[in-house]
Design a protein around this nucleic acid. Structure first.
Lengths: 339, 339
DNA sequence: TTGTATGCGTTATCAA
DNA sequence: TTGATAACGCATACAA
């Protein structure tokens, strides 16, 4: 049939080539390896590129080169600010390298994560970022089978799929415990997400429990919430905890919002913070420094994790760097007024 | 040369076809229009797909079909929670439709926005979401030239590029002013981002000014910040405002974080809120209901904007729906304790 | 309901 | 330094 004319409407490599009086291949090089062209040729070509408003077709590029220049990331949720810093880090780390960011949220479900990973692999993404170290078996298999450069962030695990860039949630929980023990607190409580739902929250709890044990204290009393970002649930959990055991003198909350809920409820119950009750949050959200009294919490390297993941993955994709390595970015206890 | 064997390593349509004893085209159909196949054939093919772990090559699909099934979005920033709800809305709206989300942040710069749009068009995205209605001339041209389905969100403008899905920032500012006027406040202040940097904050200010004028009041006194999400800057601006004019009895802040900074500073200055000073924020962040006194603010449809944008764009891409329409999702004054 | 021929727009490879 | 040719893996259009 061969009805001549650009079927897609927009100019192709061949159009630029014709306009510049060179072959398509030369235009292709002008865009990717300009230094290898004769300056004069290059100049003419770029002029035509500009004139025609030519934009290379990413699909054709990916198909021919088998590289998409896309990095995909899966985070548990896009709502709230929890992973916002990390996303910004990824975006910043990718910027300038000519890579695009493809994004999906798993809703804290490994099954959703798996289907996202599947979709991303089908899209031919060059690298993948996953949150946490707990994945579906199928997810692991997919990543391995496709030899996909991958970074797991926001936690550290025993058997990384590739790069591991984060901090130890368990160590963080333990550090909080140690601090409370040093402060002489002896009756601890914990507010966090249902263990089954959120592995990282759970690990903070485990670390906290371990610290209790090490300090010779009884196991902290738990209060769980469904959604750790709903202030209403936070308050309800706080009520349960405070009503359930009047002796509690210290509570570790798996995030700062939970801690703020507790702060409110404690006030309503006439419990002074930190005198009667020490409160420690997690995440160092904006609210932490704003509430009264200012919240003692754990600061984590959200932005850094994104940047480092992007940089290391880019190196991997470029053939530099090593496929497996663990980067512990640590965490930081931020002492304010509540503990 | 034609060295036989899958050059990419992974199974292709042809491999599945061979395994199932049908043509490649039939396998292709099995994946996209299963209902058009003989159930028996379909079943065999899907079995082989599963067995081989076949995943279609997205680049090849896009190249052949000229559709990428990717929607791209540009937001001003990924940090903080401001656009988090919107991103979640987009993600939710796209989920299930088999579309992926590609994301970029402009850093509040129209130039960055333009280069992102360029990159997205080169990637062949099927639709585009932009934040706000102020864009580079080149951005508008690109979108128009490529007839790209587009939605502008988080504001409403006079000449939409396509879909317009948001609320009137000006009307919101005005509504706040009207409320304060009704409360008998007569000396107003405003804290927000430098006008040149953030159009939407600026429009809220304009609406607020207009309300002052309509109420026969003097123009509100301004205090600007560079970064509206830094509590330090918020406090500094609040200091300036409060020290500069002792008569101020009401302040509208372009976001809730700014309002929280003001709350702190007001307290330190011994100004009672709301008795001496009414404070109104914007955005209804988590902090709004947590601070003391709880913040009166403006709630905006962040999540809804994302969902609706996704849905309408998907309809457009599918050939349904109309390319241009404005959806005013409105805003809501949330009266708490500070005004 | 299934298959055949062809093209999507680019890059890898090799040659000049 | 530049060009010719052949994939890349799939879907469109049409035929059977």
């Amino acid at each position: 049939m061969s009805s001549y004319g650009a079927p897609s409407g927009r100019p192709r490599l061949a159009d630029v080539a014709a306009a510049a009086g060179v072959s398509a291949m030369t235009v292709s090089r002008a865009l990717r390896e300009p230094h290898r062209l004769h300056p004069q040729t290059l100049k003419q070509i770029l002029a035509k590129v500009d004139e025609l408003g030519y934009l290379p077709n990413g699909s054709a590029r990916s198909l021919a080169s088998r590289r998409s220049r896309i990095v995909a990331a899966v985070v548990p949720t896009l709502s709230y600010s929890v992973y916002a810093g990390t996303l910004q880090g990824l975006s910043d780390g990718l910027r300038g390298a000519g890579f695009e960011l493809m994004l999906g949220d798993s809703g804290y479900s490994v099954r959703n994560e798996r289907s996202l990973v599947e979709a991303f692999i089908a899209r031919g993404v060059d690298a993948l970022v996953l949150t946490g170290v707990e994945h579906d078996r199928a997810t692991r298999d997919l990543v391995v089978a496709h030899a996909l450069p991958i970074a797991e962030i926001w936690d550290l695990g025993r058997e990384p799929l590739g790069l591991s860039i984060g901090f130890s949630n368990r160590a963080a929980g333990r550090a909080v415990g140690k601090m409370l023990a040093a402060l002489g607190r002896r009756h601890w409580g914990f507010i966090g997400t249902q263990p089954a739902r959120e592995h990282r929250s759970h690990k903070r709890m485990e670390g906290f429990r371990k610290a209790a044990q090490e300090a010779g204290l009884r196991r902290p009393i738990d209060a769980f919430v469904e959604n750790a970002m709903m202030i209403g649930e936070a308050r309800a959990a706080a009520e349960r905890l405070l009503c359930g055991s009047a002796r509690i003198d210290a509570v570790f909350c798996a995030n700062d919002l939970l801690a703020c809920g507790l702060l409110q409820v404690a006030g309503e119950h006439g419990r002074r913070v930190p005198e009667d009750l020490a409160v420690v949050g997690f995440g160092d959200f904006d609210i932490a420094s704003i509430v009264t009294p200012a919240l003692t919490t754990v600061r984590i390297p959200g932005y850094r994790m994104g940047v480092v993941a992007a940089e290391l993955l880019l190196a991997l994709v470029a053939g530099e760097g090593c496929a497996a390595s663990t980067v512990d970015l640590g965490f930081e206890l931020v002492r304010r007024r509540t503990a």
